[in-house]
Amino acid sequence: MALPPDVEHALKNYLAILMGFTELLLDESGPGDPHRADFEEMHRAAAAAVKLLSAPERTEP
């Protein structure tokens, strides 16, 4: 299920945007913020997706 390089690149870009904004939300939410756990879930999921894309077996043809 190798993705075409262009698609992979774009996908990673979108995930990076997702992660970045989530980090900003995390920065802005205080320790007692009720949404904080949700933001953390979003960040974790995006990071996991990036990791999947960057896994060594993915870059090998």
Partner: peptide
């Protein structure tokens, strides 16, 4: 070339 990335960086 990705508008979302521009928006993110502007915020940061």
């Amino acid at each position: 070339d990705e508008p979302g990335m521009l928006a993110l960086i502007e915020r940061v």
